[in-house]
Design a protein around this nucleic acid. Structure first.
Length: 590
RNA sequence: CGGGGUGUAGCUUAGCCUGGUAGAGCGCCUGGUUUGGGACCAGGAGGUCGCAGGUUCGAAUCCUGUCGCCCCGACCA
């Protein structure tokens, strides 16, 4: 039981000027956080209580899924990162940590970095400690601070330079075992997000720089989120836009039979899909082939899309290049024989075809059947280009960005899109890190094998803000029971009246005995101030004790989520409060 | 890193265009009246106008540089 007057909850009437979105404003107004600098926040006492609630529930769910908690350093020797598989990609967002001294200690400082995540630390540790299949599988986790020098921190805790994250790492003897561990974690995540009272959905996701074979993101639906989720209510399909696919090419689709011969025609100055759509050419975008040139591991490769489609660059990750980027016009011309805008992949028209690492075509170009594309000769295009007859395609794949309204693969119903905040991510990593760091074990046949890894993250501090974004109204935060900093707020309107405070303590003790955390507002403030603050900080259950009610022998009971106020006779007070707390706890239990 | 914006008291801000005593509301302190949805009255404290340089008799205001912050983009484990 805490007394407000002896705690510290600095609430604000006005929103800070630098906050843009509701949850960020409320975090500050309700006294949960204060900013030190961009992306760096102090967790104030009330905010820290929420963090503790979330970490405790996270810990419990992971423990019951068999994960084991440990704690790793956050200052890392840079050598470990240089040894790892993603130094080149990760170093840009990593903070360097060296001495702030004036150099008088002499010699060069060793290089240290602050940990953005811990694959590079846990894998060598497990390599050193585990050598037998008998010690596998193992899943280690920690709940700790992470450091990422984000290019653009924003929206308060949503994207911060320093944040609190649960990160877990599983090590299995076999690929099947790793898949099992992955699904166990997925279930633990689902239990966690249900329990904290956040509506979240697991969506298929791209593995990005992490690498690995498959991945799910956990998204809290919110307009201010950074990610687009493509989903189908009918089938339950949900995927990040980077990963999403649709049934735009029907399963029974037959490719167009070759028709008229390929014919070159002059298109002076036409270098865009749109220009070719316009008169006098009037070739619709979905009758054109779009040819994009990339550099993958220092060789050029082509990507062919429908003219009306957009490339989803993340999907090129499936091609297996370690790094890739769009090619420059200077790189393109010597190989293709033309500048961008007149490019195509018709057999025999590419100047130096052997120089290409491949021609990768999106499935949807089959819908074009026979269409128009660049002639690899500046100012000319080719028509009557048949997909099967004329294009020099190495491999078909899924490279286009899905659009809402396209049919879902399973149900055929139109796909929908909504924004979401990514609060968790799970990856089946495979052996990418165990190979690099030599994390091996001996199996029961005396054979040396690589461990198969998974890694898992939950942004705890971001989750706190995501809950607020999802659960607030015009007056303030509306905390779910389990995540609330306190579950019960007792507003004592006349704290100078001894009977009022005595009743507050009595009801508070009853609520505590039933398992609630209790805050008593004993400040010498006017009632209006107390009610406004109560709504702002959003404690689920409010008990109001006033001098007038006390004379009638009643106090008031109100839920933050409801408008109506119940008058409860003091004599029945303890029993009623216990009953309310119990039913709330049951409703919030998973 | 590119584009846009912004920096004035603990917070929200006016003043800047057109240079001439730095103003308000909230909050804070003292006293009084109030007391069920952010009270009222009186008095008071708090600002080298982000920082540095320049122009000028004179700069919060104009110019240059610099730093911080916010938004959009790029990026994003």
């Amino acid at each position: 039981m805490k007394l407000w007057s002896q705690f510290f909850i600095p609430t604000l009437k006005e929103s800070p000027a630098d906050a843009e979105i509701a949850s960020h404003k409320l975090l500050v107004r309700a006294g949960l956080v204060r900013k030190l600098a961009g992306g760096l926040y102090t967790y104030m006492p009330l905010g820290l209580r929420v963090i503790h609630k979330l970490t405790q529930m996270c810990r419990e769910e992971l423990d019951s899924a068999g994960a084991i908690e440990l704690w790793m350093p956050h200052v890392h020797p840079v050598e470990l990162w240089q040894q790892g598989p993603r130094w080149a990609a990760a170093r840009e967002i990593m903070f360097r940590a060296d001495s702030a001294g004036d150099g008088k200690r002499g010699g060069r400082e060793p290089e240290w970095v602050l940990g953005p995540t811990h694959e590079e630390i846990i894998t060598p540790l497990v390599k050193a400690e585990i050598t037998s299949y008998r010690d596998l599988p193992k899943n280690f986790y920690q709940i700790a601070t992470k450091f990422r020098n984000e290019i653009r921190p924003r929206y308060g805790l949503m994207r911060a330079r320093e944040f609190i994250m649960m990160d877990a790492y599983s090590f299995d003897a076999t690929d099947e075992g790793a898949t099992k561990s992955y699904h166990a974690m997925k279930r633990a995540y689902e239990a966690f997000f249900r329990r904290i009272g956040a509506q979240s959905i697991a969506v298929e996701a791209d593995t990005g720089v992490m690498g690995g074979s498959f991945s799910h993101e956990f998204m809290v639906p919110a307009e201010v989120g950074d990610d687009d989720v493509i989903y189908c209510e009918e089938s339950g399909y949900a995927a990040n836009r980077e990963k999403a696919t649709s049934a735009i090419v029907p399963a029974n689709w037959t490719d167009a039979a070759p028709g008229a011969a390929v014919e070159e025609f002059a298109t002076p100055g036409v270098v865009t899909i749109a220009a070719l759509e316009a008169a006098p050419y009037s070739v619709p975008g979905d009758r054109q082939f779009k040819t994009l040139v990339f550099v993958g591991d220092s060789k050029l490769f082509l990507v062919i899309l429908r003219g009306s489609d957009e490339l989803e660059e993340a999907k090129l990750g499936s091609l297996g290049f370690t790094v890739f980027r769009p090619a420059t016009p200077e790189e393109i011309e010597p190989v293709m024989g033309a500048k961008p805008g007149s490019l195509g992949a018709v057999r025999g028209t590419i100047k130096d075809a052997p120089a290409l690492a491949g021609v990768f075509a999106d499935h949807a170009i089959r819908l074009v059947g026979e269409g128009t594309t660049g002639a690899n000769r500046d100012g000319f295009h080719l028509r009557n280009v048949n997909v099967t007859r004329d294009l020099a395609i190495t491999k078909f794949g899924d490279f286009r960005r899905v659009r809402p309204g396209e049919p879902d693969v399973q149900s055929g119903k139109p796909l929908q899109v909504r924004r979401g905040i990514e609060v968790g991510h799970i990856f089946k990593l495979g052996t990418k890190y165990s190979e690099k760091f030599g994390a091996q074990y001996t199996d029961d046949q005396k054979q040396t094998q690589l461990m198969v890894m998974g890694c898992y993250g939950i942004g705890i501090s971001r989750t706190m803000q995501a809950i607020i974004e999802q659960r607030h109204d015009a007056d303030g935060i509306v905390w779910p029971w389990n995540s609330a900093p306190f579950q019960v707020l007792i507003c004592v309107l006349d704290p100078q009246v001894p009977e009022a405070m005595a009743l507050a303590r009595q009801l508070g003790a009853a609520a505590e005995s039933a398992g609630a955390d209790v805050l008593i507002d004993d400040r010498a403030e006017r009632p209006g101030v107390k009610f406004k603050d109560a709504d702002l900080i959003g404690i689920p259950l409010r008990l109001t004790i006033g001098g007038k009610g006390l004379k009638e022998g009643i106090f008031e009971l109100k839920w933050r989520t409801q408008k109506d106020i119940a008058k409860v006779p003091v004599a029945e007070g303890e029993a009623r409060v216990v009953a309310e707390v119990n039913s709330a706890r049951q409703a919030a239990a998973v």
